Simulated assay, not measured.
Amino acid sequence: MRLFSRAAYVASVALVSLALLLGPANASRGDRLPDFKDCVKKCHSTHCLSDPPTPIPLHLRLLLWSCPSECDYTCQHAVTASRYDAGQPIEQFHGKWPFVRLLGIQEPFSVLFSILNGYAHYRGQQTIRRELPRNYPLVPYYRLFGLFGIVTWFWSTVFHMRDFVFTERMDYFAAGASVLYGLYLAPVRVFRLYKPHHRRLLRVWTCVCVAAYVAHVYYLSFIKWDYGYNMAANVVVGILQNSLWTYFSIKNFSQKKSLWAAGPGLIVTWLVMAMSLELLDFPPLWGCIDAHSLWHAATVMPAVWWYKYLIVDAKRHMGGAVVGGSRFKE
């Protein structure tokens, strides 16, 4: 675990450094609309180049809204309202729908659900500390899983509060790390790689996962920032870990004939159904709830359920030979 912890720390530092070097995101169709361009140009000339410039409220300045970004936001909604009245389709701007902000927060519901997801991981970590003995061999892996989850949802919260190049990259890289750690954890539990006689295999698996993540970040940072590739990579990693947990669930359920044993498979099913929301992309209802925010809402309960499963699984696991003062069933 020390090897993985050091590698994760180095990767995190590199991640922040790389994200700072990245360029702007690609434009959307809405950005190219003549009405939008004219609106932004006139607004900038009237409010930003005037002497003095139009003042920005404090609560907006705290979230780094400036006069140009205010013009951008105002024009997005002016053009969207005009197109809606004319019966024309709503377009995205800068890769996002024109959300109605709240106190300067760009996507209020995605922020809310990201916070709830992070809180689910935080409470799950508290439960693991309270319910499981420190010498239980999987505790370090579960705590790292929670740490990745908290960091991922922190950056998701920040990104949905204010969409900058830096916050977008951190959101993507943190999510990628979390998904990859999920794949890393699956064989550790399913094939019991935490056992001493698997130490060499565990080191190899650790190095493979760290190398894969570093290569992933390097490609996106220095070769090509490719949204399609990033999505495909996460889907492939997700399918691999979901397949392992499904196999583990079927095997355990067939042996134990107990519903708790099928927990990982049921959670995987829930998450796959939740991810289908991403395929139903639609303009935000009431200007604030879209498919992406609903996807974030749908992942809260699986996180809560997952930690409950880990506790039950560990307690049933601790029923055989005495190891360091606790009983473990292998």
Rank of each mutant, 00 (worst) to 15 (best):
residue 216 H to T: 03
residue 243 S to H: 03
residue 227 Y to S: 08
residue 245 W to H: 08
residue 258 S to W: 01
residue 243 S to W: 01
residue 201 L to T: 13
residue 241 Q to W: 09
residue 208 V to L: 14
residue 216 H to D: 09
residue 224 K to Q: 14
residue 198 H to E: 08
residue 236 V to K: 02
residue 268 V to C: 09
residue 238 G to E: 04
residue 272 V to G: 03
residue 232 A to C: 02
residue 243 S to G: 15
residue 208 V to A: 10
residue 269 T to F: 12
residue 218 Y to W: 15
residue 202 L to T: 03
residue 248 F to M: 06
residue 230 N to P: 00
residue 225 W to H: 11
residue 207 C to K: 10
residue 237 V to S: 12
residue 265 G to A: 03
residue 254 S to T: 12
residue 274 A to K: 10
residue 247 Y to G: 07
residue 254 S to Y: 01
residue 220 L to S: 11
residue 259 L to N: 01
residue 228 G to T: 12
residue 242 N to S: 15
residue 226 D to W: 07
residue 238 G to C: 05
residue 228 G to Y: 07
residue 230 N to S: 12
residue 206 T to G: 12
residue 225 W to Q: 09
residue 245 W to A: 06
residue 197 H to P: 03
residue 276 S to N: 13
residue 270 W to L: 05
residue 206 T to S: 14
residue 252 N to D: 15
residue 226 D to S: 14
residue 209 C to Q: 12
residue 220 L to E: 15
residue 258 S to F: 05
residue 267 I to T: 10
residue 235 V to I: 15
residue 215 A to S: 13
residue 273 M to N: 09
residue 209 C to T: 11
residue 205 W to Y: 07
residue 257 K to C: 11
residue 275 M to N: 14
residue 224 K to D: 10
residue 270 W to I: 08
residue 214 V to P: 00
residue 253 F to L: 13
residue 257 K to E: 05
residue 203 R to F: 02
residue 199 R to D: 05
residue 263 G to E: 00
residue 261 A to D: 07
residue 222 F to E: 05
residue 219 Y to S: 02
residue 225 W to A: 09
residue 210 V to F: 10
residue 276 S to T: 11
residue 234 N to G: 15
residue 199 R to M: 04
residue 209 C to R: 11
residue 200 R to A: 13
residue 204 V to Y: 04
residue 216 H to I: 02
residue 230 N to G: 13
residue 249 S to N: 08
residue 224 K to I: 03
residue 198 H to N: 13
